[in-house]
């Protein structure tokens, strides 16, 4: 069963458009949305939450249309905004009292444990919260109604490494139950490498790929070698090349094919998501 099914999503903003975005997230898994700023990650997430209206396409949450069953599906979702909008004059306890009545499944004990776990002050007004505290408060508020599906927009951006790890560890703990799923966007690719099972790469409003992390790392690789290996033909076997004085470095999405082209004189390294984003984002294939 798929927790999330998105097909042919379109939204035209004039200067930017989402173009037939489709991907699925099976139940029980974590999906990371990567892509440069302005790629459309936030728009996709907002469309899923029906905060932004789609123009075409379909979104299904737990197998149900996200607009037709809006209230029912949102009960099962924990949502975290990248810049959470909360009443700044309230403290966390007061804010909780404002938010909690909307959830029938609100579990005070879970909330208290989360607040304790994250070391959050209940009596301090939100405007005095740091970015990290704000994000943790936001997670605590989104997680205390036994949600099955967490949707988060940039939950780790702007957090220091210690808190980031805490948050990621928390995701892993959340995923100890197999009826749960997480969708989160981030441009911190290492966070996604660490916790995602599926990776969906968005660029310029289109899906470049949506696959399991293992597939991505088995298919993509960095090819490194001397510049003598590079000519017009071999270049075209690479998705992007950076050529320097002492050699070149390029990305392939098919290691075996690259091996056939470049042979044993080249070195094949694991490509990170950052490598993939860097090389696929180059304006032209030839830099020189």
């Amino acid at each position: 069963m798929n927790t999330l099914e998105i097909s042919n999503l379109c939204k035209d903003y004039g200067d930017f458009r989402l173009d037939k975005v489709s991907f699925d997230l099976p139940q029980g898994y974590v999906m990371g949305l990567i892509g440069p700023n302005g790629a459309g990650k936030t728009t996709i997430i907002k469309i899923i939450m029906n905060l932004v209206m789609k123009q075409e396409g379909q979104v299904k949450l737990f197998g149900k249309d996200h607009r037709e069953y809006e209230v029912a599906v949102k009960k099962r979702i924990g949502f975290v905004y990248d810049t959470p909008g909360y009443y700044q004059h309230l403290n966390l306890r007061q804010l909780k009292n404002v938010v909690s009545p909307f959830y029938e499944n609100w579990d005070e004990a879970v909330f208290e444990r989360l607040v304790d776990h994250f070391n959050l002050p209940l009596n301090k007004t939100l405007k005095k919260f740091s970015k990290g505290m704000g994000m943790k408060a936001s997670i605590a508020l989104a997680m205390s109604h036994h949600a099955d599906f967490l949707i988060m927009d940039e939950p780790t951006s702007g957090l220091d490494p210690v808190i980031r790890r805490e948050v990621l560890e928390f995701f892993r703990e959340f995923m100890q139950r197999e009826d749960r799923s997480i969708l989160f966007s981030s441009h911190i690719t290492t966070d996604i490498e660490q916790v995602a099972d599926y990776i969906t790469y968005i660029r310029g409003g289109r899906v470049i790929f949506s696959k399991t992390k293992d597939e991505v790392f088995e298919e993509y690789a960095l090819v490194k070698g001397g510049n003598d290996l590079l000519d017009y033909d071999t270049r075209s076997a690479l998705l992007g090349v950076r050529s320097g004085a002492y050699g070149f470095e390029g990305l392939t999405h098919n290691v075996n094919e690259a091996r056939a082209v470049f042979g044993d004189s080249a070195v094949y390294d694991r490509a990170t998501l950052e490598d993939i984003m860097f090389f696929t984002g180059q304006k032209s294939k030839t830099v020189l």
Binding site: E173, M175, Q176, D197, D214
Partner: peptide, 17 residues
């Protein structure tokens, strides 16, 4: 598989496989 994935910081899909 979930416990192992959590402990090893790897994907559930990997441990499952």
């Amino acid at each position: 598989i979930r416990k192992l994935a959590k402990e090893l910081h790897i994907s559930v899909i990997t441990t499952k496989r």
